[in-house]
Design a protein around this nucleic acid. Structure first.
Length: 992
RNA sequence: GCCGAAGUGGCGGAAUUGGUAGACGCGCUGGAUUCAAAAUCCAGUGGUAGCAAUACCGUGUGGGUUCGAUUCCCACCUUCGGUACCA
């Protein structure tokens, strides 16, 4: 009987669905385990072989934990709001909900054929109103909360108003806007409702603000910092400019310190933690206030500039100040003489895009305001400059420039010929700044002279505080997150604006506020977001009727917020929603989250380090503060699976460039495109331009070809350029590098009459290169095809076998025959299964395998356990093992990896019910006899040996083994060991 | 620039309290089976020298610690990932 994987896999997939094998309850005598894979965005392209890697690993672990007696929650869902569906809608008019539905269907089919143990009854979709009701709900909770720095947690906003009513905001230590005014209780109580709301907005954890945002004109929306890569949009690579807009913001900065501290409590990969640490960017230092020296036209107003510095110890080295061009004081302090220069500079800077500004970090530019500030200690006047190397949105947007201690300040000073005083003892600063904190003492600095960095810093902060011009301060790079998107396909905000224009939350009992129908998915002509296209009746759908009625007050219809939430809104709590996904009364029940607590294992890509994974931690901490979640970190352990890359194929097309056409006048650099392709093993490997004579030197077979073309076209070829063109990997012969000529010519009409310059053996080789797997690179390998050819079990095993889970590795279908062969060999062991006694060899092989596989799964080294299985099966085959006592446990061992075949083998052995519910085999070390090895470990007078022995040998047996061991005996050289020291585990010290 | 990860055969990769480097798989070579092919099975496969036993070399480079280093320490080179005028 052959291994008919198609039939077996279809059979068991149906069985699992029919019997709801993987449906899990929120209560059990067993311990709980929550294994989670990051849910996918269902794109139109479907899955390629790279996508399931993490799912397979997570599934193996989940199935393993189930065998180990855990109640395992292993859900799956879809992050189904997103830009591609919207873009498609803009192009075709197709409603994103429809595209999304189609894509989900396709994803589900593809996922189902891989045999995952998902509990599909718990599926969530972020774009479903039943789900986003709770995304809107969390938003409202954030709106109704403020961050109390005193208690270091989020609290209800009513607590804050109660304080305001009694004592104003003087004693309140909260995370709030910098421009929050100070008021007394009496003042607060006298405020109008609107004024109160305006003040509260400065405290709420989600708030409206005029923020300088990253505006992407091409996409018509704002982008968060993590959606911008190298100054252009992550999606589509469009230009991003800075623009001031009123936006909803998330006060994530309130949690900066706790987001840092929390990293110590979770088992996440160090690189990912580092990347979050970096992103939060904590720096310790001091803030210092420099008073601006009033100049004649300042009409009596006094100004001061607050700076943040990590080097307060160098304050006596400050010889100028630099403000960001956008700094609000710039206009106020600039002298009339300098006004035109400053205006021109500010104008020029604001025009530059983020990308331009990043592109030339080397150009030093700036302008002098004409104003001076007073040094807090020396009282010396310090010129105030502006320069775009100072960023408006970091620190206070102003720096005290210490050219001797900071390279940028140094370069700026050199460029504009500003004084560079040296305040370091015995350091040469004639060439560059001295930025080293250690290794020198402060000089020329009054009360700081002779002190080192640390003491000087402490001392100067003390002095600054004394004169009321500064204090120690911790600054974070992390900024509040923009939460508004000018898009259609996202969660609508549960917000309307009252008669005062103040934002009001829609009552919880009326949620969800559903997305209205629109005719166009583009922004409106007046520049409003796409939701502005919705007519009143569209908002007033059956679903939104109650909401609509609520909004009609005294014949006024209050306008709704027209922005939608960003992609990460829906993904920031989905992991908790799985615990109780159908709850219509709450985001999840207390019982459900008390039972499941948090995610035990989370597997997903590292690209979410500073996006989803940071925002989710933020929301989790918030919900923890407000008593909604029992844990303030949502995932105990996280693994980043590596990317499976594709192997792209390229052909080289020859393009001739001519400088001179004989029949006509001279044409410089004209390209004479050819349809001639060169096989890859010919010397040229890059997309390069080479001189004709160089080409002939490389390979003189070009001589005839070139001459022919020159004659036919009456021109002279000067240079040759090679274009590298992607070709679809399905155009190759099997898994080789040879191009199928016929298929290639048919692939694109323009290649119909292509001329292929082949190898001597008549083949045409393509060039291979490892790249990200993507449709546009024509290097996608489809899992459906693999399942068809080799089966899901082979695919699962092979994905694991490719290499370490966390590393990125290239896909190469050729190797799959190895694991497929293993499954066939495994299959062959079972038809003969009987009740015979296992031999010692059988037992040794089995228990060796149990030990290794168990260790491997616990360490997520799935690749090596596949090797272990292969060795096991080879050994058992050689041993002609037919014993049920061996083959039964083996089937269980294999089942997390290759569940379909395991179920079938289980049935063949006469069992009913799913193998997934069977206990993992128990390891018995007594069957493991390891080879004994001995090494001398020290020679100082005594002879000692380290000896590796089986784990559970009795002491007498160990002594006997030592004596019997050939190598040891050689070292002992006839002497009797005086003492044998047994170290628990496997090391024995023999003292000779 | 800064932070991080990694460099082992033709290829993917094994090998951790330092202990026989190259497990396992792919590929390749030879053989069996076959009219032939596919599939399957057997043997070989780091390099150099040798008929052979064997010897020497070998985990990016150069040093160091050690009886012993892919593993630990120092310096450097290369590749990849993140981040970047962050004061």
């Amino acid at each position: 009987m052959n291994y008919n994987f198609r039939q077996i896999e279809a059979k068991w997939q149906q069985y699992w669905t029919k019997n709801q094998t993987f449906k899990v309850e929120n209560d059990s005598d067993k311990p709980k385990f929550y294994a989670l894979s990051m849910f996918p965005y269902p794109s139109g392209a479907g899955l390629h072989v790279g996508h399931p890697l993490g799912y397979i690993a997570c599934d193996i672990y989940a199935r393993y934990k189930r065998h180990k007696g855990y109640n395992v929650l292993h859900p799956m869902g879809y992050d189904s709001f997103g830009l591609p569906a919207e873009q498609y809608a803009i192009q075709t008019g197709q409603h994103p909900a429809i595209t999304t539905e189609t894509n989900i269907k396709r994803y589900r089919e593809q996922l189902d054929q891989l045999g995952f143990s998902f509990d599909w009854s718990r599926e969530v979709r972020t774009s479903s109103p039943r789900y986003y009701k709770w995304t809107q709900w969390v938003f409202i909770q954030l709106f109704n909360s403020w961050y109390n720095n005193q208690t270091d947690k989020a609290e209800p906003i009513e607590h804050l108003t109660a304080i305001f009513e009694k004592e104003g905001n003087k004693g309140v230590n909260a995370s709030c806007d910098d421009d929050t005014p100070v008021f007394l209780a009496s003042e607060w109580n006298g405020f109008s409702e609107k004024q109160k709301q305006q003040v509260l907005l400065k405290y709420r954890l989600t708030y409206l603000a005029d923020a300088e945002v990253n505006w992407c004109p091409a996409l018509g929306t704002v982008l968060a910092n993590d959606e911008i890569v190298n100054g252009v949009s992550e999606r589509g690579g469009h230009t991003v400019i800075r623009k001031k807009m009123t936006q909803w913001m998330m006060r994530i900065t309130a949690y900066a310190q706790r987001l840092l501290d929390g990293l110590d409590t979770i088992d996440w990969p160090q690189p990912l933690k580092d990347s979050q640490t970096n992103w939060i960017g904590r720096s310790e230092g001091a803030s210092a206030i420099f008073k601006v020296i009033p100049t004649a036209p300042s009409n009596g107003e006094s100004h001061q500039i607050e700076v943040f510095t990590t080097r307060p110890d160098t304050i006596f080295g400050a010889s100028f100040m630099t403000l960001a061009p956008e700094h609000e004081l710039v206009a106020k302090i600039t002298t009339p003489a300098q006004k035109s220069e400053i205006d021109a500079y500010v104008e020029a800077t604001s025009k530059r895009s983020e990308r331009e500004r990043m592109a030339d970090v080397k150009t030093i530019s700036g302008a002098f305001t004409g104003a001076y500030a007073e040094h807090p200690f020396t009282k010396a006047p310090i010129p105030i400059w502006i320069g775009d190397y100072v960023l408006a949105n970091y620190g206070t947007g102003a720096v005290m420039a210490v050219p001797c201690g900071d390279q940028r300040d140094y370069d700026f000073a050199k460029h504009f010929d500003i004084d560079i005083p040296n305040i370091f003892d015995g350091v040469d600063i004639s060439e560059e700044a001295f930025a080293d904190k250690a290794n020198t003492l402060i000089a020329n600095s009054d009360f700081l002279n002779g002190l080192a960095y640390k003491e000087a810093t402490r001392k100067v902060i003390e002095e600054l505080e004394k004169i009321g011009q500064g204090q120690g301060k911790i600054n974070y790079r992390l900024r509040d997150a923009v939460f508004s998107r000018q898009r259609y396909w996202g969660e609508p905000f549960p917000v309307y604006y009252d008669a005062d224009g103040m934002p009001q939350m829609i009552a919880e009992e009326h949620l969800p506020l559903e997305l209205p129908e629109v005719e166009k998915y583009l922004p409106t002509e007046t520049g409003e977001p796409p939701l502005g296209n919705a007519t009143d009746w569209a908002w007033n759908t059956e679903a939104n009727k109650v909401v609509a009625n609520e909004l009609i007050d005294h014949k006024t219809v209050f306008p709704l917020e027209l922005n939608t939430m960003p992609g990460w809104a829906g993904s920031s709590q989905y992991f908790n929603r799985y615990m109780d996904p159908h709850n219509a009364a709450a985001i999840y029940s207390r019982e459900a989250i008390d039972y499941w607590q948090d995610v035990d294992l989370y597997i997903g890509g590292s690209e979410h380090a500073t996006g989803h994974l940071l925002y989710s931690r933020f929301w989790q901490k918030f919900l923890f503060d407000r008593g909604v979640a029992p844990k303030d970190e949502f995932a105990k352990k996280l693994i980043n699976q590596g990317m499976i890359t594709g192997t792209s194929a390229f052909v080289q097309r020859i393009n001739f460039e001519v400088d001179y056409v004989k029949s006509k006048s001279t044409v410089i650099g004209q390209t004479f495109g050819s349809n001639i392709f060169l096989s890859a093993t010919n010397k040229i490997k890059e997309d390069i331009v080479i001189d004709k004579s160089e080409l002939l030197k490389l390979d003189n077979s070009f001589q005839g070809l070139i001459e022919k073309i020159e004659q036919e076209n009456n021109l002279e070829i000067s240079r040759v350029r090679f274009d590298k063109i992607h070709v679809d990997i399905s155009l190759l012969e099997g898994t080789s590098d040879s191009l199928n000529e016929e298929a290639f010519k048919k692939w694109r009409p323009e290649f119909n009459d292509a001329i292929l310059l082949k190898e001597n053996d008549g083949t045409f080789k393509v060039q291979r290169e490892i790249e990200k797997m993507s449709k546009s690179k024509y290097n996608v390998v489809n899992p459906d095809q693999i399942c068809e050819d080799y089966g899901a079990d082979s695919l699962r095993l092979y994905e694991m076998f490719l290499g370490p889970l966390e590393q990125s590795k290239p896909w190469n279908t050729a190797g799959i025959t190895g694991v497929h062969g293993f499954l066939k060999k495994l299959w062959k062991l079972y038809p003969a299964v009987d009740d015979s006694e296992p031999t010692p060899d059988n037992l040794k092989t089995l228990h060796k395998t149990i030990k290794k596989v168990e260790e491997d799964i616990e360490n997520f080294s799935f690749n090596t356990s596949v090797s272990t299985f292969m060795i096991c099966v080879n050994e058992l085959t050689a041993q002609k093992c037919t014993s049920k006592a061996i083959l039964e446990p083996l089937a269980i061992l294999v089942s997390p990896y290759a569940p379909h075949i395991a179920e079938e083998l289980w049935e063949i052995m006469g069992h009913t019910g799913s193998i997934a519910n069977v206990s993992f085999p128990k390891l018995e070390v007594k069957y493991l006899v390891e080879s004994t090895k001995a090494y001398p470990i020290s020679f100082n007078g005594k002879m000692r040996f380290k000896l590796e022995l089986p784990l559970d040998m009795a002491k007498a047996d160990i002594e006997a083994a030592v004596m019997a061991h050939e190598q040891t005996a050689k070292y002992l050289d006839g002497r009797t060991p005086k003492k044998v020291i047994v170290v628990p585990g496997k090391i024995v010290n023999v003292v000779g």
